[in-house]
């Protein structure tokens, strides 16, 4: 069952569209904000609320890369791998993240603290290389600066 709060937030989105299923992406984002990721159960609950089939909703959920269909850690690191960051030292940053966290892309640290994912251009190309952690953008990074950045996320 969707929680009262989740339902209220989705209903506010429904007012912005002429059709219920049009709010599918907003609804997925809302539930993910509360639960961290979209489980099969979450998917069915949202689909029912929007009067869609779960399969239809899953085709949407799996298309958009910021919707997580598998559990993620407490913090999600999105490492930009697009061209300007690639030129400016993405590979070294990636290597250092793999080394420090002991995980590859798509994996979560054993303590559940971080999930590491690649992301397309973050629009911070004049301050490359860049990454995001949760809602925060971090720019002008070097492998040495990672300690300080990661420390802020427990």
């Amino acid at each position: 069952m969707l929680a009262e709060q989740e339902r209220r937030e989705i209903e506010a989105e429904l007012e912005r569209y002429p059709r219920r299923d049009a709010a599918s992406i907003d609804a997925l984002r809302i539930v993910q904000r509360h639960r961290g990721w979209i489980s099969d159960d979450s998917l069915r609950e949202i689909a029912e609320f929007l009067q869609m089939s779960p399969d239809d909703l899953d085709s949407v959920a799996t298309f958009y890369n910021l919707i997580y269909r598998r559990p993620v850690g407490r913090h999600v690191i999105l490492l930009c791998n697009s061209v300007s960051c690639w030129i400016m030292g993405y590979a070294q940053l990636r290597q250092e993240l793999h080394r420090r966290l002991g995980i590859g892309f798509g994996e979560t640290t054993a303590d559940g603290r971080f999930t590491l994912l690649p992301i397309v251009c973050l629009g911070a190309c004049d301050h490359a290389p860049a990454l995001m952690i949760d809602q925060d953008l971090h720019r002008d990074l070097s492998p040495d600066a990672l300690d300080r950045v990661l420390e802020g996320y427990r």
Binding site: D21, A22, D26, S59, V120
Partner: peptide, 25 residues
């Protein structure tokens, strides 16, 4: 209204954007 998307370069394509606003792929 503000619609915050959930990723994919294709959303920037004119008709892809319309499908995304309709809650589709």
């Amino acid at each position: 209204y503000l619609h915050v998307s959930a990723g994919r370069y294709m959303c920037g394509e004119e008709t892809g954007l319309l499908n995304a606003l309709e809650g589709k792929r």
